[in-house]
Design a protein around this nucleic acid. Structure first.
Lengths: 144, 144
DNA sequence: TGCAGATTGTTAGTACACTAACGATCCGGG
DNA sequence: CCCGGATCGTTAGTGTACTAACAATCTGCA
């Protein structure tokens, strides 16, 4: 036996990206829920924001804007509609399409809670310095 | 009006941790599924690994080891049992407890697929240099 | 000893996320 | 003009993740 350490790398769960990533996300959704309460989830919020930016767009297109597939965006849209934040109309130019847009209540929710959403991001990143926060976001962005 | 820029910070969805985090995780689970196939999820894999390390433990304790609550770990354990990777027995010292341990097939799965799991982590982090990968993991670890 | 409070596992309900399949509609090329 | 392929939205099925409630059991303290 040589004194050189074994070549097979140990599998340490706590050092695997996926495992750590999942826990960071758990912490983030916890912070989000504490700030927003039961009536809004991170995904619903991102749909709301994108709809505020885009003005009006089809259901599937909104899904692409927030990186959810067609089955998932349907559920999200349904819940936002049920809560009166989004309304729909048929696309006059394409009978397959369902156009979505914010209601007045939806616009209000966007305006009044954007500051809270910024706080959630701040609190999530709070354990890091400003420089570290910027580094993390830059690196994560490249893994998207 | 002064010439100083407006104090209200813009809310840019693409720069919020939670939004980026979700997409990185999506990419990771996609890579994992491509490598492992339909019969194993990242969460199931982490339960398997922890059980290989811990030897035998109660269901709730395993949940704490992989950061899932009691309701979630039950579903994960049930599926691992159904697939013959885990078996159970009653704890003779505490009649509330259900002890879990790997079957022979479970040990095999752990041994034969650890290298694949390492590949998944590598591929997830591939867009970054080794130094950047280490930086990212160090920063993420502090946000857990 | 005996009871209060904690822990263990289960179930029901909600939300996100993906695959696969489906009918309706649209569009472009022959 | 028509037909094949693409896109749109819907549904069913599976898995992860959380809350809340519950019965059974255990533990510590009066």
């Amino acid at each position: 036996m040589s004194a050189v350490s074994a070549p097979e790398p140990a599998y340490r769960l706590d050092e695997q990206v996926g495992f750590v990533l999942r826990q960071v996300q758990q912490r983030h959704t916890g912070i989000f829920a504490a700030a927003f309460g039961d009536d809004m989830t991170p995904t619903q919020w991102s749909a709301l924001v994108r709809l505020a930016e885009a003005g009006e767009c089809s259901q599937n297109h909104l899904g692409r804007l927030i990186a959810t597939d067609v089955a998932t965006i349907k559920g999200i849209a349904d819940r936002l509609i049920r809560r009166g934040l989004v309304e729909t109309r048929a696309d006059p130019a394409d009978r397959r399409r369902l156009l979505l847009r914010l209601t007045e209540a939806g616009h209000d929710a966007y305006r009044t809670r954007a500051a809270t959403a910024l706080d959630v991001s701040s609190e999530t990143l709070a354990p890091l310095s400003k420089t570290e926060q910027a580094t993390l976001l830059r690196l994560l962005d490249r893994l998207r």
